[in-house]
Design a protein around this nucleic acid. Sequence first.
DNA 1: GATTGACAAATAATGTACGATCTGAAAGTT
DNA 2: AACTTTCAGATCGTACATTATTTGTCAATC
Lengths: 232, 232
Amino acid sequence: MSTITNIRQAVPDRDDLAEDGGSSIYERLRDDIIHGRVKANERLKVAELASRMGTSTNPVREALQQLRGEGFVIMTPNRGARVRPIDEEFVRDICEIEVLIEPALTRWFVGIVTKSDIEELERLQEEIEALNFGDEMKHSNLDLQFHRLMYDRHYNRHAVDLWVRHRHILWAISRGFPTSLSRQANVLEEHRELIACIRNQDVEGAARAIGRHVEGSGRHIIERMRLDKRHG
Amino acid sequence: MSTITNIRQAVPDRDDLAEDGGSSIYERLRDDIIHGRVKANERLKVAELASRMGTSTNPVREALQQLRGEGFVIMTPNRGARVRPIDEEFVRDICEIEVLIEPALTRWFVGIVTKSDIEELERLQEEIEALNFGDEMKHSNLDLQFHRLMYDRHYNRHAVDLWVRHRHILWAISRGFPTSLSRQANVLEEHRELIACIRNQDVEGAARAIGRHVEGSGRHIIERMRLDKRHG
DNA sequence: GATTGACAAATAATGTACGATCTGAAAGTT
DNA sequence: AACTTTCAGATCGTACATTATTTGTCAATC
């Protein structure tokens, strides 16, 4: 019978050294969906996934339920789970929402920012520029710290959670993709302009800057997805 | 195209008499959390819930995982699930997000609206005014149809899903709460103005109208929550 | 005598196994 | 050809085993 061939196999021989390795069933499944290793609308059979993951069915079922809650799989009673397609539209949809949310978060930040906050932003930005996209992981971490400094203290926890989740998804999608030189330059420029607006207490300017930042990021990811799809 | 009435369990069954029958574990748990029948940060023990629901532990675990995915419970490894507090802040947070999203959806709708759409909106509005908040359930359904007509065809399915979920939560919270006369008048007025702006192709006016609509709705719910808390 | 630390028992979460029930589709019947 | 029956495959629910955490007790130390 035809089976899902693209899902990551359970680690065959290296047992117990890396324990779970931090990758739970949930994370592996989510990663497979986000990276398109399982086709859109493909059926996810619990028994099959369980044997593939090397566990029994129960953990798989619970992981699927969690993914259902997050909207990554669609479940119908007595008929199991299907993959929700993670395509360019999905990225576009997320980014469009962020284009609405992040400027709002940023406006608030401009209103409560302190001198030391700005200094910290500048310090992070210097680190980012010094690194110059040399290490994808480090850059991602610095960039996360940069934006987290702006959003973490916001009173609307729900909005911030949404941002965190969206960022997580986008990061998972774009991990491994190279960043074009053009996009690199734009990222640095957008960050610098953002800092300048914040320092000048230019609320609307900061909002516009972050809006462009999000939009550019989304466009870049979509372009990379297209290239990736074409060249395998 | 197949029927759009794909609403899961849209039938509001009010039979609380049968302990095991009727609604699913998931819905009962979610309802308990949203309505504050379980205290904030209270620990949710699977065995206890299972015996209370009259089932074994597995369905409860899966329901909890789904709720975790939706953000209603917080789970920590080997330490179980805790209730996420559903309070006034939560409502405010949701409404603030909707104040950002719904105007964007509305702007798009103004751009694609047809004559028959406007006629349908007006027909629904007439029904709403004729009903005049006589039946909470019917009003809620009509209001849902009203806004669904505007949003359902939007290309950003993710944003629409978010709206649906938020609306669902707010509806569950405010169910049973009476609507003040003042709020009733405002709702009708806001709908009328919204329709007028749409007919006149006044994009920004429509966006402002829906923004006020959402904001007023949120404020009303929060006020009712305060009253409810005070008087038991 | 009160506090702290270790150790044991209880409690609860997590994982495994299996039977019951439902679905989908291919067989067989009119 | 349409309807019914049958059956394999998958989901869903129950029971149990395992593992981790919390709690309670008691002795040792300050």
